[in-house]
């Protein structure tokens, strides 16, 4: 019994630790958020991470890793947004399913392309401005930020991730709620978080940690016990 308690306690502590490490948003804005690489603090570090500080951010600014006010002719401005980070040149296997009614682009578009410029694991985090990246991709958190496969190996298989760059077709798909009336936790409509009526990473995640729910992966609505699967059920009529 005593041994069981010890094991249970250890498990609880481990789980608690992991959850704290992962549940990393505070909804207090970009400063101090997981995407603030200027303060030297690894917000979601994981055992095995090869990066333990943020000295790779050689300019020490917050916005600059992703955006620059003047591109100096680098024409990185994918999708507007004054993009300042090298984008991935990988080709992806897109999500497909017989039950899918929306139309998926042949390759990630919109600002998903921007997220993948770090999160597919192929481009060094410090490949911004005209700086040639040297930091091992996605290694800042031991691979958890690598959405394609969760390891340090580049894998461009997006079939295991929720479809992105897909039209939100609630007309053909009765399983989707009306985006004009479905709202996230902060009151924003789903429609306002689509881009050209397409679901992108930013539809669920608020990259700037401003409109997200504290303690989540920058999610626009929480998914835990206080509102089980609340994020999923914002769009999915299940």
């Amino acid at each position: 019994m005593k041994k069981f308690l010890v094991v249970a306690l250890a498990a609880a502590l481990t789980l608690g630790g992991v959850s704290l490490a992962l549940a990393n948003g505070s909804a207090a804005g970009i400063s101090g958020s997981p995407h603030d690489f200027s303060d030297g603090t690894i917000k979601n570090g994981k055992p095995g991470a090869t990066i333990t500080d943020e000295t790779w951010n050689y300019r020490g600014e917050i916005c600059r890793v992703c955006h620059a006010p003047h591109d100096k002719g680098r024409t990185n401005y994918t999708n507007g947004l004054l993009w300042n980070h090298a984008v991935s040149t990988e080709a992806y296997t897109m999500y497909a399913s017989e039950t899918l009614d929306g139309v998926t682009d042949g390759t990630p578009g919109g600002n998903t392309k921007l997220c993948l410029s770090c999160h597919d694991g192929s481009v060094g985090l410090d490949t911004f401005d005209s700086h040639a990246g040297a930091t091992p991709p996605a290694s800042v958190d031991g691979g958890i930020g690598n959405l394609a496969n969760g390891s340090l190996v580049i894998n461009t298989d997006l079939q295991g991730t929720h479809p992105v760059s897909i039209t939100y077709n609630d007309t053909a798909d009765a399983g989707l709620l009306d985006p004009a009336t479905a709202t996230w936790a902060d009151g924003t409509t789903v429609a306002a978080t689509l881009q050209g009526n397409k679901v992108q990473c930013s539809t669920c995640h608020d990259v700037h940690d401003k409109l997200s729910v504290a303690g989540t992966h920058l999610l626009r609505t929480a998914n835990g016990s206080s509102n089980p699967s609340g994020l999923c059920l914002t769009c999915h009529n299940k």
Binding site: N223, G224, S225, S226, P228, S229, C232, L233
Partner: peptide, 8 residues
Amino acid sequence: LASQREIC
């Protein structure tokens, strides 16, 4: 964790 139980 009990606080992280989801449906889906």
